[in-house]
Every structure is written in structure tokens, then in C-alpha cells.
């Protein structure tokens, strides 16, 4: 029964990921008319990436909201950035992952010390 609930959560995460990816694709095709040539990092997308990866990896820090909602919102934002027009969301995704992993390391070390 608990495995079924976990699988239900996994299905919801997959659906949210696909929804985020479709939104990212629609948004980036409207915004960027040409294929990836100009190498610049866009600030709103960077913020989305950081928040998305932070929520997905560090959901334990936000105890007042149920985990599955936090991870769903995180996955939506992650997919939004990851699945933009090919070539566009790369730098922002990498920066988002690095920052979230650093925060995760620090919080894990802090909990281990305490």
C-alpha cells in the first residue's frame, strides 16, 4: 500500500515535470526567435533554476509545507529551465544545481555536527 502511494507520488512528479517542460518550451519559443547563438544568461530564468533545484534537493528544510508539494513545485521549475529551446537553459541549470548541492552539503554537515 505504501509502495502504491510512493508510485502515485512518482506519477504526479512525472506529470508535473512534463507540464513544466511544455511550459518552458512554449515560453522560450515565444521569447527567442533564433536558435542559440548569443551566449547570455537571463536573470529571471536563473532565479527559476536556483529556486527549482533548491526546492527539489533541499525539501527537508521546509518542514511546514508537505514534501510532495515542495518537490512538485521544484520539479516544475526545473523542467521549465531544463527544457527550453535547445541550448538556452544550460548555464542557468548548471548554476542552479551547483548552488543547491552546496546548500545541501552544508545543511547535511550541520545536521551531522548537531
Amino acid at each position: 500500500m505504501s509502495i502504491m502511494i510512493e508510485k502515485l507520488y512518482l506519477l504526479i512528479y512525472l506529470i508535473v515535470f512534463v507540464a513544466g517542460a511544455i511550459c518552458g518550451l512554449l515560453y522560450s519559443y515565444q521569447k527567442h526567435i533564433e536558435p542559440y547563438v548569443v551566449k547570455e544568461t537571463s536573470i529571471p530564468i536563473l532565479i527559476f533554476a536556483i529556486i527549482g533545484w533548491f526546492l527539489t534537493l533541499n525539501y527537508g528544510l521546509l518542514n511546514f509545507i508537505p514534501h510532495f508539494i515542495v518537490i512538485s513545485i521544484g520539479l516544475f521549475l526545473v523542467a521549465f529551465v531544463l527544457d527550453m529551446r535547445p541550448g538556452y537553459g544550460r548555464k542557468e541549470t548548471v548554476i542552479g544545481i551547483i548552488i543547491s548541492v552546496i546548500i545541501w552539503f552544508f545543511t547535511q554537515c550541520l545536521f551531522n555536527i548537531m
Partner: peptide, 10 residues
């Protein structure tokens, strides 16, 4: 190459 988006198969 940049390749298609990840959801392209879907």
C-alpha cells in the same frame, strides 16, 4: 549538437 528537447519523444 544541441539536440531536441528531452520531452521530444513524448
Amino acid at each position: 549538437r544541441p539536440g531536441p528537447p528531452i520531452i521530444q519523444y513524448l
